[in-house]
Design a protein around this nucleic acid. Structure first.
Lengths: 357, 357
DNA sequence: GGGGCCGATGTTAGCGATGACAGGCTTTGC
DNA sequence: GCAAAGCCTGTCATCGCTAACATCGGCCCC
């Protein structure tokens, strides 16, 4: 009886099955399926039909092994819960869509040992490039990245020494800029609210830049409040309440991200606190989802969209050039400039004179 | 520690390099690195040292081809911007952490043709299982899923016929439940605000269930407002303004998700609209990040955390059982019960009698 | 003391694709 | 009319690793 192939797939299909079904060699089938080399229209059609008929899906594992080419780009980020990273991912995907490359995500949860593990796993698939958040990695991770012989782009942060290429902003500078704006606006009693800084290096650097620039203006942090775990409006609200109860004379609150900052804003509205005159507020990251509050929270754009795009482009260019390694001065360095958005919660000048809205 | 490891990687390392460095056969090295079979402690140690010294990272491509085992689970979701999906992902990752399996994400942007492409790409890596959002797929996608010979779990939605296993809630039922609560609370003039429903099947089903149950209560949708693109508070705010200007006598607004619902809530607060008495509000999905508003938006928990965990467990169990196919009645069906959270924006009974809080 | 067995290692043959090259069969140019 | 130059297709070796089996000394036990 003829093998009418509606049969449930006992054994996964291979090129051979298609080649037999269409009466040509495996090689020809392979050529058709990859659109490579010359194949007559007649056979091409016959092969395609057979492949579709059988429902053949090529085995990239075998393909990659044979061709020594794996069109994957490892993207390693700390978290998916942070909104910033999905955004970066989206841009990376879009940029890579123009190329044969494809992103694969790995999540580290801000833990160096997890980063190491994830990196190892990813590298064992021999990707064509790596995009990884941050400049701080364990020695083992650094060694792996260097040894992989593929382009590496570290993203988000530029305060440090990159392994290869880097695209990001200086978080120290971002912190300084915000501090300068705050000092210039005449705020004096400044509170900081953020994550426990130990593992979030970028938040830490912003904090450092922030205190440094405050110091230069003759100011210092009057109180601070830390939290662990994911960000939420609720947490911002609670922390704001706590810090204001403890230190009622604070006149500015700097949050390490927009989510908790927005929570603080809600707290202030609910309690009739005059923002930005009694208390000023600022966050970080320009989470567009949050636009829509009655007052726009002052924040800073970290250029995360562009970061993703640029990083992907660097990888794509290097892979296309066949120059997969990171010889000589191939490393690109792109430092974007963060821009401050005063919103409605950060005055532009001292409040002595009242500026009606 | 000799720093001879500075060797610039000319040619990627293979098992052979390690085997030569440690003076045993490749096979033995392979055994050591996989912890399989008996190897004497002496050689094990020698091999491990050599591997570390060289910075060897095994090639999973070759390993997978040889062993016919790829410990990846394809997870296909519509978007990373939606918060719901990162949450599901997180739970899947956690559940798979107990196993040798690893998730790999693909994003479809709610487009069937992209879903098809992403699925094809993923299947060509021969994963051990597939977790895919929704029950609606193109014929080609369905054929691929059926033909892949691996366990498939469709998640989020149970209204329809699964290919294999399914874990989720009935969105029709969720819509009905909300409609019943609204009707019971005595709201009469109901508005709906949501995405253009064409491609978001789950939102569509909620809408259908919602109108159906309203009809049963003798009510109908008085007005509706649709949007495209990502959700944001701003969008919720604008849509709310639009619908209320057009149909000022609406006394309830049902939003297709919490983000735009929260935007509506902000609009109402700002305009002194008495919620929930003049107008009631409800969203969907219980986005915990949004807790912290002065009023808690009524919403519904879709059990997305549990969905991820259960889906991963189903795959893991099937893979472990070596029963990778989906023969007979292997398909598991888990329908979770959505729970309604009245928050502060949905009355529990008609407002004739005033119930002080 | 020799058969049996076991632990430790090596040998061989693929896994399913692709690269390089080797042909047949047509065309083309002069 | 015949060599050179295509097209189109096939053969063969290989990618780096692992399954399965083969091998080789002990060690145990009757």
């Amino acid at each position: 009886m003829t093998d009418e192939t509606q049969t449930p797939p006992k054994r996964p299909l291979t090129l051979r099955d298609v080649s037999e079904a269409s009466g040509v060699s495996e090689m020809t089938v392979s050529r058709v399926l990859r659109n490579r080399g010359d194949v007559s229209d007649a056979t091409r059609e016959r092969v395609l039909e057979a492949a579709k008929e059988l429902g053949y899906v090529p085995n990239k594992i075998a393909g990659a092994l044979a061709s020594q080419r794996v069109n994957l780009v490892a993207v390693i980020i700390p978290s998916l819960g942070n909104m910033v990273f999905p955004r970066v991912m989206t841009n990376i995907s879009e940029a890579l869509d123009q190329t044969p490359l494809q992103p694969v995500v790995g999540v580290t949860n801000y833990l160096p040992e997890r980063e190491e593990k994830v990196l190892y796993e990813m590298l064992s698939w021999r990707p064509s490039g790596v995009i990884i958040a941050g400049l701080e990695h364990s020695d083992a991770s650094k060694a792996m990245l260097r040894g992989a012989g593929i382009p590496v782009v570290e993203i988000m942060d530029t305060d440090g020494t990159p392994i290869d290429s880097v695209v990001g902003i200086s978080h120290r500078r971002a912190g300084r800029m915000m501090a300068e704006a705050i000092a210039k606006a005449g705020y004096k009693r400044i509170g900081f609210l953020g994550t426990k800084l130990s593992l979030d290096h970028r938040a830490r650097k912003r904090f450092e830049g922030f205190t440094e620039a405050l110091a230069k203006a003759g100011l210092e942090i009057a109180d601070q409040e830390f939290y662990e775990g994911g960000s939420s409006l609720q947490k911002g609200r609670e922390m704001t309440e706590a810090i204001l109860k403890r230190t009622p004379d604070l006149d500015f609150l700097y949050y390490s991200n927009d989510i908790i900052g927005a929570g603080g804003l809600l707290y202030c509205s609910d309690h009739g606190i005059d923002v930005p005159n009694k208390v000023g507020l600022a966050g970080f990251n320009d989470i567009s989802m949050l636009k829509g509050f009655s007052k726009r929270l002052a924040t800073m754009d970290s250029g995360r969209g562009e970061i993703g795009t640029k990083a992907a482009e660097i990888i794509a260019a290097r892979v296309e050039a066949g120059d997969e390694g990171m010889t000589e001065g191939k490393g690109v360095r792109i430092e974007l400039t963060p821009t401050i958005d005063f919103g409605d919660t950060l005055r532009k000048r001292p409040s002595e004179a009242a500026y009606p809205e």
